[in-house]
């Protein structure tokens, strides 16, 4: 009896491992982006908008939100990502587009004051809003979404690079975390995801 027990448990263990593997690999992904529903917390922040007003996540309730961390001096990823979002929104009809806010959060408040942010976002369209805040506010928000940022050494002209997250976080109208869009995703795939999300929440 005593010798049989481990063998029986061995079988149970093997079956459980197989079931776990099956559960992990099953199911077609619904979206092109990573589904982060339930993985990440609801949207919450205290920041300053490009008009210099204090804002919080609730102020954007009722609309789909695309959140991106960057800085206006960014040489590549930020303008490219903003342009991709603009292209994705461009293919939607007006009413759908008005249900979407793009929140560009600058993690470089030293250089990105509200005027500068307003200038940057206005070149991408009315749905784009620039936000920033104190280091403490920015760290609270970035830590909440398990992302980080860091500053490089300034060159002779005082210019420095900022490392930051390259992903777009998509939140539902009530602030629920929904999707994480990475750099590889095409404009069409992003647009399809946004359409699907909006159909679902309507």
């Amino acid at each position: 009896m005593n010798h049989r027990l481990p063998r029986r448990l061995f079988v149970v263990f093997a079956l459980a491992a197989t079931a776990l593997l099956a559960a992990c690999s099953g199911g077609e992904p619904e979206y092109n982006a990573h589904d982060i529903e339930g993985v990440m917390p609801d949207l919450a922040f205290n920041l300053t908008d490009e008009n210099g007003n204090a804002v919080e996540a609730d102020d954007y309730d009722g609309r789909l939100k695309l959140l991106f961390f960057g800085y206006t001096n960014c040489p590549d990823i930020c303008p490219a990502t903003m342009a991709r979002i603009r292209a994705a929104l461009g293919g939607l009809d007006d009413t759908t587009r008005e249900n979407i806010d793009v929140l560009f959060v600058s993690v470089d408040p030293e250089r990105d004051d509200p005027e500068r942010l307003a200038q940057f976002t206005s070149s991408f369209g009315p749905r784009f809003a620039g936000l920033t805040g104190s280091q403490e506010q920015l760290q609270t928000l970035s830590k909440r979404y398990r992302v980080t940022y860091g500053y490089g050494e300034p060159n002779d002209n005082g210019f420095y690079l900022v490392s930051h997250s390259s992903a777009i976080f998509v939140f539902g109208p009530e602030g629920k975390a929904r999707l994480l869009v990475n750099q590889e995703q095409s404009v069409d795939a992003l647009r399809a995801d946004l359409k699907k999300l909006l159909e679902r929440v309507d």
Binding site: F69, S142, R146, V147, T148, Y149, G150, G152, L161, S163, H164, S165, S166, A167, L180, N182, Q183, E184
Partner: peptide, 12 residues
């Protein structure tokens, strides 16, 4: 592992 680009690295 693209997640480190997604989340940003601690230093460049």
């Amino acid at each position: 592992y693209d997640v480190y680009a997604v989340c940003g690295r601690a230093f460049p």
